[in-house]
């Protein structure tokens, strides 16, 4: 399996947004809680659409939520 190189600040942003739970965020963006867990732990790279939905849920631009870990 290719290493996931998309990093994210979802956990931090959840706490900054009234400590919303993974389940609440999942319901808001229309995925399962397990998918949010997988994204948060950098096990799964979301599609561009889902990434935008998550960024919109936090009312932040995409690059503040997700970042790409380039090869050094």
């Amino acid at each position: 399996m290719a290493k996931c190189r998309i990093r994210n600040n979802i956990r931090k942003l959840r706490f900054e947004h009234d400590e919303i739970t993974q389940k609440q965020l999942a319901e808001q963006v229309g995925v399962t809680r397990q998918t949010i867990v997988a994204i948060e732990n950098a096990k799964y790279s979301p599609s561009l659409e889902l990434a935008f939905l998550i960024a919109n849920a936090f009312d932040r631009p995409l690059q503040e939520v997700f970042s790409f870990e380039a090869d050094s």
């Binding site: 995925v31 399962t32 397990q34 998918t35 997988a38 799964y44 979301p46 599609s47």
Partner: peptide, 8 residues
């Protein structure tokens, strides 16, 4: 859940 998301 009957929801099937992109990861599933």
């Amino acid at each position: 859940t009957i929801l099937t998301d992109e990861r599933e």
